[in-house]
Design a protein around this nucleic acid. Sequence first.
DNA 1: AAACTAATTAGCATTATTGCTAAATAGAAG
DNA 2: CTTCTATTTAGCAATAATGCTAATTAGTTT
Lengths: 103, 103
Amino acid sequence: MADVFQALAHPLRREVLKKLRNGPMTAGDLAEAFPVSKPTMSRHFATLKEAGLIEAEKVGTVIRYRLNLSVAEEAAGAIMDVLKIHPDTAAKAAPPSGAVEKS
Amino acid sequence: MADVFQALAHPLRREVLKKLRNGPMTAGDLAEAFPVSKPTMSRHFATLKEAGLIEAEKVGTVIRYRLNLSVAEEAAGAIMDVLKIHPDTAAKAAPPSGAVEKS
DNA sequence: AAACTAATTAGCATTATTGCTAAATAGAAG
DNA sequence: CTTCTATTTAGCAATAATGCTAATTAGTTT
């Protein structure tokens, strides 16, 4: 559980999670979407996987990653608990879903 | 805004935020509550302050820190946005407020 | 089996984080 | 103005995180 916060600390990993909200993606397709080498992406995947935020599934020659909603939900809940914020308040403060964050 | 996630990554800093939910505390009182040196605590305070999660107020000889709810709320909202989780779902997944986390 | 593709692991360098002790600052009190 | 208290800043060492290229693994295809 503690690893979750660490996993969320890197902007690239947060962007990966955002991409996976729309559905599973292969490691290769994800890697193409970011300006770092494939091995570097692979390491970020491992970090997210160890935190339980994503899950890997081997499909033929390809590895498909998908968001693990149950762990992600737990993480969001834990964060709100740390801050003792009522869910409705946080929802109101959330930026529009399409917002881009500079890294 | 990006610093917020980094600030939340360290377990000690999350515990500091939890303590501040009950109201403002002085740097010294906070420092006594954790098994690290005062200069180390001071650095953690600086990290939280740079992230905007806490605010400092000098009261006589003492510095009082308090949770900055508006930034904290924004952070919680941003996290939920990354994960695209509906607030109610996250609320249900939140652990009991008194839960202790091992560092 | 040889070659090709997708992805990971190994090994290395660079930078960031953490935590310590010692020293500095700032204000309060004598 | 000296001293005391609260807190921070400086400087250092150890550890962790990031990102690269080169090499490896595993599965497909010819």
